[in-house]
Structure formats: C-alpha cells, structure tokens
Computed example of a mutant assay.
Amino acid sequence: MKILFVDDEQMILDGIERNLFDSDWEVEVACGGEEALEMLADEDFDVIVSDMLMPKINGVELLSEASKIQPHLVKIVLSGHADQDMSMQAGFVAHQWLDKPCDEKVLMETLSHIEEGLANQPNHSIKKAVSNANVLPTPPVTFTKIKKILSNDGENLDGVADLISQDTPLTAKVLQLTNSSFFSRGKTIYDVREAIVRLGVELVNSIVLLTETYANLPNNKDINFIEEQEKCLLISSLVVHMVSPEQREAAILTALLHQIGKLLLLQVFPEKAEQYSGILKANSYSELKELEEEVFDTNHGKVGAYLLFLWGFPDEIVEGVAKHQDKEHLINSDFGISAAVFLSHMLIERKKIDDDFVEELKITESLSKWEKIANQILSDA
C-alpha cells in the first residue's frame, strides 16, 4: 500500500517517516498542498493523509483536487486544528478524521484496517467510484421537509430525526460525521436523534444543505429510490425481533443501510441502469447477489460495505451489509445481524425462503413467528 502524508510542518513529516520506517507500506511525504498535488500528478497512491490548516492550499481544497486526479484514493484527515465549519466540509471530501497528535498505535491500526479493506475489494473501477462517492443521492423532497421544520421550529429534534431516518443516504452521512473523531467524544452513536443532539441543529442544517449541493441522484425512471428507502425502514422494523437486545441498534442501522450499494452501482455503471432495473423487477432477492456479479463483477452488499468501511462505520455494520446476501456465509456462521437482515428483506417482500436454507439456519420454529410480525408491519404501513 502506498501512502502520501501531507503537512506544512516538516518536523511532523519527519516523525511520521520515522514511525512508519519499519512498516511494509511505501510512505512518501509532501510539505504543503502544492507539493502534494505535483506528486499526485506524477505517482499513483492508495491513501492520502492530510493536515487541514495549511497555507495556500488547505486540506479541504487539497483533498477535493486529489479526488479529481486520483478518484480511487482513500482520503484521511490528520489534524489537530480546524474550526467546526472546515471540519464539517472535510466530512464531504475525506473518508475519516484522525486527531493530531495521533497515537502511533491508532494510526497503524487505522492504516492496517484500510489495507485490509482495499485487499478485500479487488475491483479497481469499484474502488475508484466508491472512494469518490462521499455523498450519496438524496431525494430533494427530504431536504425541503427538513429545511421547513428547521426554519419553523429549530428545536423540533424529533421531527428532524424522523425525516432523516427515512432517508438512507442522509442517515449514513449524519452518523458518519457524528462518529468521526472530531465530533465524537463518547460512545458510538447509532440513533439519529442522539446524533442531532450531539451535533446541534445548526450543524445538521448545514449538513443537509451541503449534502444537497453534492447530491447527484441518478436519473432512472425504472427505479424508485424513495420506495427502496421505505422498504428499508420496514425491514429495520422487523429485524429487531430477530436479534439479541445487544445487537438491536446495530441491526437497525444495518437494515437501513444494506441497500446503499444499489445507488453506487448505478453511479458507477449508469449505462447498465436499464438492465439492472430489469433484474431487480424480475428476480427474487435471494438470487440477486449472483445476478449482480454477472453484470457488475461485484454485488451491492460488497460495494455498500466498502463505502461504509471507508467512512469508518463499526465493523459489525460493515460486515452485516457485506454479508447479508451471502447465503453460504450465513449458513456457516452463527445466526446474527447479516442473516436477520436477509430474512427480514425476504419476508417484507413476501418472498418464499428455501426450506433447506431455513433448516440450515435452524430457524424453523422462529420463522412462522417472524412471518406474522412481518405481515403486521406491512398491514400497518
């Protein structure tokens, strides 16, 4: 793995080189944004780690330009000084934020984790597209409603939380920023209302506006993304009945986000949108993984998980999204979040689940109970 570190203080760069001297990574440094852009134009890198407050070209400007030069880059901020506005902007051009000074162990673990994630996603075109997709498409109607609530009653946290929770991409972005090290000073937040409390209404309002600026909803008449998001909400309502109390928060978030890769597949392969919409309409969800891999050489679970991994989501959620379609993995693992999300999706779509699969998972007795709950959720919707 080849890493470019950027800072305007040579002493800091010298320290990084010393600390990583014995690593297996190829480490290069650039003193300032101008030198970094010159290096990016001449050499390929896997990861860029940049300071925020630098003269001439700041970290936000550098990472924005770096994305244009090398879209596959994993972009990390390593900074100890930045105002709230710049930090929020960094969340739209960087995948993760690390505080400076950063403990050497934390830095090594973060980079090792990224190396592992890069190795698990061998498709270069997917890496390129996903790494550059810092913000996912969000229906404009959501922005309109949220802005109306914020303008009429800035303290209506429940109303804002309800709307954001109905919008999968915006949920992902708000939670990503909430759990970044700049804003996070405690436990990992899975609940949108808690995230709003932590961030504050003004910051959430800015996130909504910035997301609207970056959003680029694919123009596809055959796929209704609002319906897809509503389905994820129903699935999240069912999945809590299948997992242990300790897993419920993570299971809800995994259910909300498990379809996120579909949006990315359409962003990466717009020319295949019509073919993909035909596959989605004509086939059961249980067959979708194999059909996607025939068309895209990957599947929406793997692509969505890669994005969430880059954004620094907890491993249990990344794995839940990555594995929820992988039936071989599900039958060879203890019943958990991935299996619960897959089954919830099948039940909400009222699709038949193979008897052999049910027997392998040892859920014959539970399935009839879950079917009744799913039917009640659908009737109440």
Score class of each variant (00 low, 15 high):
residue 216 N to W: 11
residue 216 N to M: 15
residue 218 P to E: 07
residue 219 N to D: 15
residue 220 N to K: 04
residue 221 K to R: 09
residue 221 K to W: 05
residue 223 I to V: 03
residue 224 N to H: 00
residue 225 F to V: 00
residue 226 I to L: 07
residue 235 I to L: 10
residue 235 I to F: 06
residue 236 S to D: 11
residue 237 S to W: 13
residue 239 V to Y: 06
residue 242 M to I: 14
residue 242 M to F: 06
residue 242 M to G: 13
residue 243 V to K: 04
residue 244 S to M: 14
residue 245 P to Q: 04
residue 246 E to P: 09
residue 248 R to G: 09
residue 251 A to C: 10
residue 252 I to D: 09
residue 252 I to P: 07
residue 254 T to P: 00
residue 257 L to Y: 03
residue 258 H to F: 03
residue 259 Q to V: 10
residue 261 G to W: 00
residue 261 G to N: 02
residue 262 K to W: 00
residue 262 K to C: 05
residue 269 F to R: 02
residue 269 F to Q: 03
residue 270 P to Q: 08
residue 270 P to G: 08
residue 271 E to H: 00
residue 273 A to G: 03
residue 274 E to H: 07
residue 274 E to R: 09
residue 275 Q to D: 11
residue 280 L to N: 03
residue 282 A to S: 09
residue 282 A to F: 05
residue 282 A to C: 06
residue 284 S to V: 09
residue 284 S to D: 13
residue 286 S to L: 15
residue 287 E to V: 11
residue 288 L to H: 08
residue 289 K to Q: 12
residue 289 K to W: 03
residue 291 L to P: 09
residue 292 E to H: 05
residue 293 E to K: 12
residue 300 H to T: 08
residue 303 V to P: 03
residue 303 V to D: 05
residue 304 G to Q: 04
residue 306 Y to I: 01
residue 307 L to E: 03
residue 307 L to C: 04
residue 307 L to P: 01
residue 308 L to K: 02
residue 309 F to S: 09
residue 310 L to F: 00
residue 312 G to V: 07
residue 314 P to T: 08
residue 316 E to W: 06
residue 317 I to R: 01
residue 319 E to F: 05
residue 321 V to K: 02
residue 321 V to L: 03
residue 322 A to E: 14
residue 323 K to G: 08
residue 324 H to N: 10
residue 324 H to D: 12
residue 325 Q to L: 14
residue 326 D to Q: 04
residue 326 D to H: 06
residue 327 K to G: 12
residue 328 E to H: 11
residue 328 E to K: 13
residue 329 H to Q: 12
residue 332 N to A: 13
residue 332 N to T: 09
residue 333 S to M: 06
residue 334 D to T: 14
residue 335 F to V: 10
residue 340 A to Y: 07
